[in-house]
Simulated scan of single mutants.
Amino acid sequence: MTFTVEEPARDADEVRRRHEANRIAWDEGALHYTRELAADIERLRAGESSTHPVERAALGDLASWCGRAVHLQCASGQDTLSLLLEGAREVVGVDISGRHVDNARAKARALALPATFHRCDVLDTPSELDGTADLVYTGQGALCWIHDIRAWAGVVARLLRPGGRVLVFDTHPATCLLDPEATTPVWSGLDYFAHAERNTGWPAEYIGDVVEEHAVKHERLWTIADVVQALIDQGLALTRLEERPDDFWNAFPALGDEAKRALPMTFLLTAERR
């Protein structure tokens, strides 16, 4: 996968343009998820949750407190529907890719699960959901596709009911500072505070060869401070922040386990609407 450094989006029009480009790219990438549809349905039918153990520990007994969970950037809905297995009584998924949403709806329909899915830019999450979420959840690898973190935090805040929580478990932004192919930690040359890029293609180990021509997509590095401050500015109270060595992407295959354990690979954040 090749990339070119670009300036961060400076206005709302550019944010929308980049999100739309990402929609096209994810419609392509979602073909891989469609191929896995039958297998994913069987995993859910068998009670196999895709919720990460770190998330599970942070969420606790969802059945005791979560009526509605809203999953922003839900992809094909496997993690969304897994929240039902964890105890949520109802789930709502939002994703920009129509193909992803079609996959998610097919899974919910096949299993008759209490789930609703909306196809839209996350920044356009329907206002009918405002103040209804006990939990707002974002999956792993979600925030890099957002090009206005403050607007994203505004969506999170308006969705949460009083006492509702947001949980983010995502790639630690510091991982972008290291060369993923190096056998020892080597600076990648990227700017931690302002990196944005345009790229084409998907890692073969993730999507595989699903299309011959890949659309251009755009990613943005948000520091942990960016994410935390955006939520605080929306009036949310930070309740947990952890930097962790969990490497759910195997981001540095050439590094030894000892080096990986000494590096921040992921971060966990929870915040509450008071």
Rank of each mutant, 00 (worst) to 15 (best):
residue 105 R to I: 01
residue 136 V to Y: 07
residue 140 Q to K: 10
residue 129 L to Q: 12
residue 139 G to C: 11
residue 139 G to A: 15
residue 67 G to S: 09
residue 46 A to T: 01
residue 44 L to A: 03
residue 113 L to F: 08
residue 96 I to H: 05
residue 80 T to S: 12
residue 128 E to H: 11
residue 59 L to N: 01
residue 115 A to E: 12
residue 125 T to V: 13
residue 48 E to V: 10
residue 53 P to T: 00
residue 99 R to K: 15
residue 112 A to Y: 00
residue 70 V to S: 13
residue 67 G to D: 14
residue 137 Y to H: 15
residue 59 L to K: 01
residue 49 S to I: 01
residue 58 A to H: 07
residue 66 C to S: 04
residue 80 T to R: 05
residue 54 V to E: 08
residue 104 A to M: 11
residue 61 D to N: 15
residue 128 E to Y: 07
residue 125 T to G: 11
residue 44 L to S: 05
residue 46 A to Q: 13
residue 135 L to R: 05
residue 85 L to F: 03
residue 107 K to I: 09
residue 77 G to P: 10
residue 111 L to A: 01
residue 77 G to C: 10
residue 44 L to Y: 07
residue 44 L to Q: 05
residue 94 V to S: 03
residue 114 P to L: 12
residue 92 V to Q: 10
residue 140 Q to M: 13
residue 105 R to L: 02
residue 126 P to K: 08
residue 77 G to H: 11
residue 60 G to P: 11
residue 89 R to N: 02
residue 81 L to T: 04
residue 123 L to M: 06
residue 43 R to M: 14
residue 46 A to V: 02
residue 78 Q to G: 06
residue 129 L to Y: 12
residue 117 F to R: 08
residue 114 P to C: 12
residue 59 L to P: 01
residue 138 T to S: 13
residue 79 D to I: 05
residue 63 A to W: 02
residue 86 E to P: 03
residue 48 E to M: 07
residue 51 T to W: 00
residue 56 R to V: 00
residue 128 E to S: 14
residue 123 L to F: 11
residue 135 L to T: 04
